[in-house]
Write a protein that binds this DNA or RNA. Structure first.
Lengths: 159, 159
DNA sequence: TATTGTTATACTCTATAACTATA
DNA sequence: TATAGTTATAGAGTATAACAATA
C-alpha cells in the first residue's frame, strides 16, 4: 500500500521549471544514446554547424559553458572524428565539422526536431504560441522579436 | 573585439527550458548560500514540513530522487540538526523537522517566495497566468486544476 | 517476493584557481 | 593587460547494482 503524497512545491514556477527541464533531458538523452551522443554534444555540434570556425571560447560563451569545461566536450567530439581544430592565430583555434561529423549532426538534428515537436505537443494548442516566449522571458527577462507569439502567428499566417 | 554569435538553438523549447532552469537555479542557490542551503535541501525541508513523518522513499518518489541518492541528502540535513529520523516500523523511518529545522525552513521559504515572485515578474503580466500551466504541461503532459490559468484568474477575481 | 535503507561506484555538469602562450 | 587554451580539482546531481533486514 503506497501512500500518495501531495507535492507542496507544485505551485512554484522555479520548481516546475527544474522538474520539466530534468524530465525533458532524461527523455532526450535516451533518444540520443543510440548515437553515442548527449544533449550537450548536439548543442555544440549545432553551434559549430551554424558558425564554422567558431572558437572554443566563443562557443562556450554562447552556450553558457565555461572555458575550462569546454576542453572535455571538445575532446569527446574530436575522438570519434566529428570535429577538427584549425589554428586561427597563435592562441585561438577554430572548430569545424568533419564530413562524418556533419552526417552525425544531421542525424542528431532529426532526433532533436522530433523531440521538440513532441515536447511542444504536451502543451494544449491554445497555449503553444506562448511556450517559447515564456521560456525566454524566464531565462533572460526579455524575448527576441522572432520568438514572440504575435510574430509566430504572423509568420504562420503569411506562409 | 568580441564577435557576437547568434545562438542557433534559440528556438528549441527544450533548450530554452534547460537554459531557463539552469539560470534560475544559479540565482536561487546564490540567495540560499548564506543559509548554507541548496535548493534541493529546501525542497526536502518543505516536503517534510508538509508531510511530517514521511519516509525517505516516499519523499524521494515525490521529488524524483532515487532511494540511493536520498541517503546523502538526509545526512546533510541531519548533521546541522534540522531533521530527525523516527522509526516507523522495522525497516522504515519517518522524517521530522526539529524546532531548529522548522525555523530554518521558514527562513528558506521566505527566500523561495521572494525568488519565485521575481522569477514570475520576468514574464510580462499578460503571459504570467500561463507560466505555471505551461511548465506543468511540459513536465507531465497534464495540468492539475488548481494550476490552470482560468482557476488562477477566477481565484483572483473572487478574492 | 517486494520494499526500505544503505554502500559502492561511476559519469555528467559545473565552478574555481592557476599556468602558458599569445594578442 | 587581456584573452585562449589547458590542467587540476572539487562538489553537486544522477544512475545502476548489490546487500541485509524487514514486510
Amino acid at each position: 500500500m503506497t501512500r500518495i503524497m501531495q507535492d507542496p512545491l507544485i505551485s512554484l514556477p522555479g520548481y516546475l521549471l527544474r522538474r520539466a527541464s530534468a524530465a525533458a533531458l532524461v527523455e532526450l538523452n535516451q533518444r540520443l544514446a543510440m548515437f553515442g551522443l548527449h544533449h550537450t554534444d548536439v548543442s555544440l555540434l549545432m553551434m559549430i554547424e551554424a558558425h564554422p570556425g567558431i572558437t572554443q571560447s566563443e562557443a562556450g560563451r554562447v552556450l553558457g559553458i565555461q572555458r575550462a569545461n569546454m576542453v572535455a566536450f571538445i575532446n569527446r567530439l574530436e575522438k570519434p572524428e566529428w570535429i577538427e581544430r584549425r589554428k586561427v592565430d597563435g592562441r585561438s583555434q577554430g572548430l569545424l565539422l568533419t564530413a562524418k561529423g556533419a552526417r552525425t549532426t544531421e542525424r542528431a538534428k532529426r532526433i532533436i526536431e522530433d523531440f521538440e515537436t513532441q515536447l511542444l505537443a504536451r502543451v494544449p494548442p491554445s497555449l503553444q504560441p506562448h511556450v517559447r516566449p515564456i521560456l525566454h522571458y524566464l531565462w533572460t527577462g526579455t524575448c527576441p522579436d522572432d520568438l514572440l507569439a504575435d510574430q509566430a502567428i504572423a509568420i504562420g499566417e503569411t506562409a
